[in-house]
């Protein structure tokens, strides 16, 4: 399940930032990868649209890495 989510998220991420490679799932979007707030907003919006879930703005700090985002979606999907 988590692997599927990860594959899907990586696909969305590569569509938003085609030239950026994620080396580790612990890389922080903002600090390590340099993803700015606008790209982050688009990425989150795509994920929300795909999974039909809501990621409130206040939760964004909790999903600072790809790994954390996978956990977040996995948790949201099971609720």
């Amino acid at each position: 399940m988590k692997q599927n989510i990860l594959t899907n998220l990586l696909r969305h991420f590569s569509e938003v930032k085609p030239k950026m490679k994620i080396e580790s799932n612990d890389d922080r979007f903002k600090d390590d990868l340099g993803v700015d707030s606008l790209d982050m907003a688009e990425f989150i919006a795509r994920v929300e649209q795909d999974y039909r879930i809501e990621i409130p703005d206040k939760d964004w700090p909790k999903i600072a890495t790809m790994g954390l985002l996978v956990d977040y979606i996995d948790h949201a999907a099971t609720i």
């Binding site: 606008l38 688009e42 989150i44």
Partner: peptide, 15 residues
């Protein structure tokens, strides 16, 4: 409205 919300709209519109 919030820009983050309007970004969500833009993604939704494309889709």
């Amino acid at each position: 409205t919030l820009h983050t919300d309007n970004t969500r709209w833009s993604v939704g519109l494309c889709s």
